[in-house]
C-alpha cells in the first residue's frame, strides 16, 4: 500500500481518520468530538457525518455523493476544504487514489 500523503485532497483520495485519532460522542456537550494526542476538536453535525464516512474505502467523490443523497444543499468544495484542513492537522490521512483503487480494507 502506498504511504499516506498530506496535502490537498483529490476526488480519488480515500480519507480515513489518522491511526491515533478517535471520533466519539460527548454527552456533556451533546455533540461529536475528535480526540487526538494532546488535542480535542468539537465538531458540528455536518463535520461528524463527513468523518463517519471517512472509512478508508470511500473516495472523496463518493463521500460527497453520499452526503448529497442524504442532505440538500451540500457544497462539495466545502467538504474538500474541510478534509484538506484536517489532513494538514494530521487528523485525517488519505491513501492516495491509484488506478484500480488503493486496495484498502
Amino acid at each position: 500500500m502506498p504511504a499516506p500523503t498530506a496535502g490537498t485532497v483529490d476526488d480519488v483520495d480515500r480519507p480515513r481518520l489518522a491511526p491515533y485519532v478517535r471520533l466519539t460522542f460527548d454527552p456533556a456537550r451533546d455533540g461529536y468530538v475528535l480526540l487526538a494526542p494532546e488535542s480535542v476538536s468539537v465538531l458540528n453535525g455536518t463535520g461528524a457525518t463527513i468523518l463517519e464516512l471517512c472509512d478508508g474505502r470511500r473516495t472523496v467523490a463518493e463521500i460527497v455523493a453520499e452526503l448529497c443523497a442524504r442532505y440538500d444543499g451540500v457544497d462539495g468544495a466545502e467538504v474538500r476544504r474541510f478534509l484538506t484542513r484536517l489532513v494538514a492537522q494530521r487528523t485525517v490521512v488519505v491513501d492516495p487514489g491509484v488506478a484500480g483503487g488503493a486496495g484498502h480494507g
Binding site: D26, A28, R29, V33, L35, E38, V40
Partner: peptide
C-alpha cells in the same frame, strides 16, 4: 471529570 465535560486526561 468526565461528567463535567473532560475528554482528555494527562
Amino acid at each position: 471529570a468526565k461528567e463535567l465535560g473532560v475528554l482528555q486526561v494527562h
